[in-house]
Design a protein around this nucleic acid. Structure first.
Lengths: 265, 265
DNA sequence: CTGGACCCTCTCCCCGGGGGAGGGTGCAGA
DNA sequence: TCTGCACCCTCCCCCGGGGAGAGGGTCCAG
């Protein structure tokens, strides 16, 4: 039986951290003296402590660590770990993209932004709508678009979507993806919808979506400079997207932001 | 002039976050109405907001972001950014190593640990000592060892170090690195020191230092199983180290932990 | 039996936000 | 000019994974 200080020395985990792991139900001492509250660990808990240490170095949240070290089946455990490694991969990809986008921001090579005003009439479309978290929007988009493809036999023009401002402001909001078509417009989650008529400020973003907010910002600056104000929901359409090519640099995203004269807000 | 909500829509930064950035002195509104406290932004602050956004995606702390966006000289700014990118690289390397170490832990292929007890007599050495942070210990070690090499003409045996337990427990502690020699033992930070006689439990760790705590743990378990207790400072020596080869898998680190009979603590 | 190392619980602090309460402002339509 | 409502303000509490320290109990060797 090892007192907490001794166990700390053997595992390179601080005494404080060991106590926290006990409170979190993550690493229970082998025995606890009921009179004094002293924690006593056994030497064969050392490997467990080391696994915990590694998982924490990978920023796995404590509750997930608890699930991993407590799961009895090594298969389940491996699966949980693999899931977290995938999460790390995604994070790494996001980091790389942020670095690239930062470089583009700091060393700009700005092609002048083409903004046009376009009066869009009310448009009937086949649509899938829902309330979505910002993190899950990509997955939701893929699923919704697959359903649209299954239902809409003869699409016209590129697919598109409407995104509520709340999605960017609070991380959750209404999203609607649509296809224009002369054919059927209902089935499963797909329903016919008529997009309202609006005046749009339209521009096209080229490349991956990691720095699409830059284009949003430039579009917004143009709108403001022209005495207009924006109001959601924003419309995007995807003349060239992940459905068309695997090369994000080739993507083209048309952004249409409903505008009003400043005074008419 | 844009109200905060409008600016939020143009930058995809939440209203809350914009207010926080104002409070942190990171992104000052162009004007603030002294009567109402309303913040008003100008459209040409959008690029700055986007740079901040990217830096935050890279987990650059707010004070550092403030330094970057406020530094007038683009060269300085690039240097600050580059520094953070280096930090990200290091972090990435650490993550990779933790993943590798975790795999080794979960799929162990354990060569049986060779532990020997060795009575070490008092030993005169040339040494550099200091109080070091755990993060900086590698850099400190490199500097100290370079000074030792400059002073000690004829070293005997591998270099070594003594590490206070506090280094692992509180992240800061006494460290002493030494070389045995029959030659000079003083110069610069180098001073003659006599390491006290101790009884050591000794084993050798093979490979990079990322999972050296596993060997520490196994050594500790062996010590406990043999009715002994450990006490610092730990001694390490480096028969094969970064000085000898660039391949961390070839490194050999001898760990000697002072031991006492359990009862004699 | 005593001193000192060790251990206990408790509270407060850090970061970068999110959530909500409670109240003041700006502006368009009536 | 009034009213309603969207917008804005400040202030406080919450999260996770610890670090720091206060104040007090416990263990054990000399």
């Amino acid at each position: 039986m090892l007192a907490i200080g001794e166990f700390s020395r053997l595992t390179h985990l601080s005494v404080r951290t060991l106590r926290r792991y006990h409170d979190a139900g993550l690493l229970e001492p082998a025995t606890v003296d009921p009179a004094s509250g002293y924690r006593y660990y056994s030497a064969d808990q050392i490997p467990t402590a080391q696994v915990i240490h590694r998982l924490r170095e990978l920023d796995v949240p404590l509750p997930d660590v608890a699930r991993i070290v407590r799961s009895p089946d090594p298969g389940d455990r491996a699966e949980l770990v693999a899931g977290h490694l995938r999460r790390l991969e995604d994070q790494l990809a996001a980091t790389r993209e942020a670095v690239a986008s930062l470089r583009r921001l700091l060393h700009p090579d700005p092609p002048p932004l083409q903004v046009r005003l376009r009066a869009v009439p009310a448009t009937p479309v086949a649509a899938v709508a829902g309330v979505v978290d910002l993190d899950g929007v990509l997955a939701w988009y893929a699923g919704a678009m697959a359903e649209l493809d299954a239902v809409v036999a003869e699409p016209e023009g590129p697919p598109g979507g409407l995104y509520d401002n709340a999605l960017f402001e609070t991380g959750r909001g209404h999203v609607l993806v649509y296809r224009r078509t002369a054919g059927p417009t209902a089935g499963g989650r797909v329903h016919p919808v008529t997009l309202p008529a609006v005046e749009l400020a339209v521009t096209t973003h080229a490349g991956p979506h990691d720095d699409i907010d830059v284009t949003y910002g430039e579009l917004g600056a143009w709108v403001v400079a022209n005495g207009l104000a924006v109001a959601g929901p924003v419309r995007e359409s995807y003349p060239v997207g992940p459905r068309d090519t695997d090369d994000p640099a080739a993507w083209r995203t048309e952004i249409g932001w409903p505008v009003f004269p400043m005074a008419a807000r």
